[in-house]
Amino acid sequence: MKSNNQNEGKFGFTGYAENWNGRLAMIGFISALIVELVTGQGVLHFWGLL
């Protein structure tokens, strides 16, 4: 595991930013699955977009 270097930027295509992007994408995907399982309808229907 690479240590968090203070000189490494927090924006752009850096390892730090890509790790956070992946983590947030996983949280969003799991949240969408939970909404679908609990309500019985997709996320877009739940929000009234379809």
Rank of each mutant, 00 (worst) to 15 (best):
L37E: 09
N5M: 06
N5P: 02
V43W: 03
G22N: 04
F29C: 04
L49K: 06
L33D: 06
W47N: 10
F29I: 04
N21H: 08
V38Q: 09
A32N: 11
W47E: 12
L49D: 03
I34P: 02
G42F: 03
I34K: 13
V43L: 14
M1D: 11
F29N: 04
N7A: 11
L44W: 10
F11K: 04
S3W: 07
E8K: 10
K2Y: 15
N21I: 12
H45S: 11
G15W: 02
F29A: 08
E36A: 06
N4K: 01
G15H: 02
W47A: 07
T14V: 05
Y16W: 05
N4F: 10
G40K: 00
G42A: 05
A17S: 15
M26E: 14
W47L: 14
M1H: 02
V35P: 01
F46M: 05
Y16D: 08
E18Y: 02
N5G: 06
L49S: 05
L50H: 12
L50G: 15
G22F: 06
L44M: 14
G9H: 13
A32F: 01
G42M: 02
W20L: 13
L33H: 04
T14N: 05
K10L: 15
T39I: 03
F46A: 04
L37A: 14
I27F: 12
E18K: 08
G48Q: 03
V43C: 04
N19G: 07
F13A: 09
A17H: 11
Y16M: 02
A17F: 13
G42W: 09
V35N: 00
L37Y: 08
S3F: 13
F11I: 10
L33Q: 06
A32D: 01
L37K: 11
G42P: 07
L33A: 08
I30W: 02
G42L: 06
M26G: 07
N4G: 15
G40C: 07
G40N: 13
L37F: 07
E8Q: 13
G28P: 00
Q41H: 10
K10I: 04
Q41G: 01
Y16L: 05
K2E: 15
F29V: 12
T39Q: 09
N5A: 06
R23W: 06
G40R: 03
W47Q: 11
N21M: 14
G28V: 03
Y16A: 02
N7R: 07
I34S: 02
G42K: 09
G28A: 07
I30F: 10
T14Y: 01
N19Q: 15
R23H: 14
L37G: 00
L24V: 13
G9I: 00
N19K: 15
M1G: 09
N19Y: 05
L37S: 09
G28L: 11
V35A: 03
E8W: 09
N4A: 10
